[in-house]
Design a protein around this nucleic acid. Structure first.
Lengths: 345, 345
DNA sequence: TCTTGGCACTCGCCAGGAATGAGTGCCAGG
DNA sequence: CCTGGCACTCATTCCTGGCGAGTGCCAAGA
């Protein structure tokens, strides 16, 4: 019994603090939430909670503030996931509808997410690594210059221009194109690289090797490079930075490091962590993450992707004092819609 | 004579204020800059400058601060453009070298610019509107589904997937591709749209109209739409937002509106204004611009593009109290290098 | 006519100190 | 185990006086 009430007190503290951003005292607590006990009782509970490290007081004569550990307990045990209202659902659909291409989809998603949560939203572009090659197109820009276009199952298109060591005929170009597609089409990009290399070897052996003049090798290398190019994996869209204004105080200790992190996409990816599939939302609170400069920020993230496979992450970053239930619901909802769109595409 | 000295005083005030961010008094001025006159004289000059509206004092017993008008005079008449040091030049080259595609070039440029100026840097992607069509590629993803790839002279690639009203044969596809390229290849995109429409009409008339089944019309419309898609025109890369921390005070009045503007790309473009060609750098100071929320920010921008044609803008945004000569030099230098890279491409 | 030193004056900024009040911890009684 | 009461702590706020940077003006000198 008393334990349940202590948890209720913790929950109330978290909720109030998130809303008011001020240390919350025993009296106000009892008044606002119908706890049905006196302030003194709550004070005893708070003393215990403080001893156990869930809350703390910034100075002696102040109210209590949740610690990271307190938030952790809150999200782990006290969060009742409130589903999105139907109005919100409608907003999401209409917001994501009418997207014309992948870029657009991702960008709309960040905007949406930042608006829903009033935090900074981050959406990683679908990763190459688990996607398959849908098509390879080769276009002659000039006799010794080819444009390679690599189309992946996620809808991503990678392009490269290569200079050839020799001129290429229309016939050879046609031949090359069909061979490339036979070798790589439908393959996972990891496998496709190998297949392409094998095919290249075969071609330079079997086909009039003199005529090829190393063209195949050049083209294949460019394609392989395009596939393994991690830069693309790291592409990220960010939105809602103006919500950082809501951080309140502590520009230098909280906002500035975050702004810096937001520019370092690699850092961001690490921060969001591994994509978790199946509607599971990961919450990282304060110093739990890898960067202690960001000890006053939390991350709420999840994976998304076609099918139930998580091929990329998306989430929000905000102060540890944030609306976890709301953010988790929004993140999950957006991930779900996004996955569905990728399914259809 | 006295006029020259007054200008020197103004320049000194601007320089000192930019450096220290504090109102500058007559005594300190005489000490730091070798003005060769007494503080009292400087005071008289300052009184005149204030009367003319070039400087102002935040409160009675404080030093002077330049007004927007003062900054304006400063950049118009008192700025000696300091060329980049050779070290900086080298840094620029090495920073921009090794870029693999247009996205990369633009992103590197923003980073570079924000590092050089320690401000927020903005680079607009090269606009479609003045570029020409280099190639149109058509790929069959399925019997009734085509991927259209539009390659422009700026290196931009636009893609669209279209659903066809009827199946298309390989032969017809080949035919379509060559016709599209004959019609649009090398044209300005404004002209290309017309040419494509004309070609579509010709085709549906001359060729077995039954077999076409509206395919040409669908494809052409998608291409035209891709070309005129203004969303692409508005693409922008931003970097250096963490430099906003250097704004000092006034988060709400200065930084927050700016953060909001940075997310509204349309606003940003308006802010940067028309691209000016030929190494001319535009400076907009404080409230001179279209947004009075941004009255404490200045913009230093210029156009860039292959040849001497400005097809896009780039620049930095910062507090009115910023290092104008330095920023102008950096903006100009980056624009120049960027133009050169586009020339080569 | 311009420059200069002197001088009185203004006013923002910065301790120091007292009043305020929210909030706590503890204790004794129900 | 809960509750009311009470003394205590301490951050915050407000006020005040002193300090000093900086100014404007004036009269004298070049």
């Amino acid at each position: 019994m008393q334990n349940d009430r202590r948890l209720a007190v913790l929950r109330a503290i978290v909720e109030d603090y998130v809303r008011t951003e001020e240390p919350v005292g025993s009296k106000a607590l009892v008044e606002r939430h119908g706890l049905g006990v006196s302030p003194a009782t709550v004070r005893n509970d708070m003393a215990v909670l403080e001893e156990e490290g869930y809350i703390t007081q910034p100075h002696t004569s102040a109210g209590r503030v949740p610690t990271d550990k307190g938030y952790r307990l809150f999200v782990d045990r006290l969060t009742t996931v409130k589903p999105m209202s139907s109005a919100e659902k409608r907003a999401i659909s209409s917001f994501l509808e009418g997207a014309v291409d992948l870029d657009d989809i991702v960008q709309r998603s960040t905007r949406l997410l930042s608006q829903l949560t009033r935090q900074v939203a981050i959406v990683q572009y679908p990763t190459l690594s688990r996607s398959t090659v849908r098509h390879v197109e080769v276009v002659a820009l000039a006799p010794t210059r080819l444009l390679l276009v690599l189309i992946l199952s996620t809808g991503r298109v990678e392009q490269r221009v290569v200079e050839l060591p020799a001129e290429i005929t229309d016939e050879a170009l046609f031949d090359l194109r069909s061979r490339l597609n036979r070798a790589a089409g439908g393959q996972l990009i990891s496998a496709a690289a190998d297949e392409l290399r094998k095919a290249a070897e075969r071609m330079s052996r079997a086909d009039r090797p003199a005529a090829d003049g190393g063209i195949t090798a050049v083209v294949v290398e460019a394609l392989v490079e395009a596939m393994s190019d991690h830069r693309s994996d790291e592409r990220i869209a960010v939105s809602g930075t103006s919500n950082l204004a809501r951080f309140g105080d502590s520009f230098d200790t909280a906002v500035r490091p975050l702004l810096e992190a937001l520019e370092e996409h690699v850092v961001l990816l690490k921060l969001m962590g591994e994509a978790t599939a199946g509607g599971l939302v990961t919450v990282r609170i304060g110093a739990e993450g890898p960067y202690q400069e960001l000890s006053s920020t939390s991350v709420v993230a999840t994976g998304y992707g076609p099918g139930d496979e998580a091929i990329a992450t998306l989430g929000v970053v905000g102060p540890t004092r944030m609306d976890y239930p709301g953010s988790m619901a929004a993140v999950r909802a957006v991930a779900r819609y996004l996955s569905r769109i990728l399914d259809e595409a």
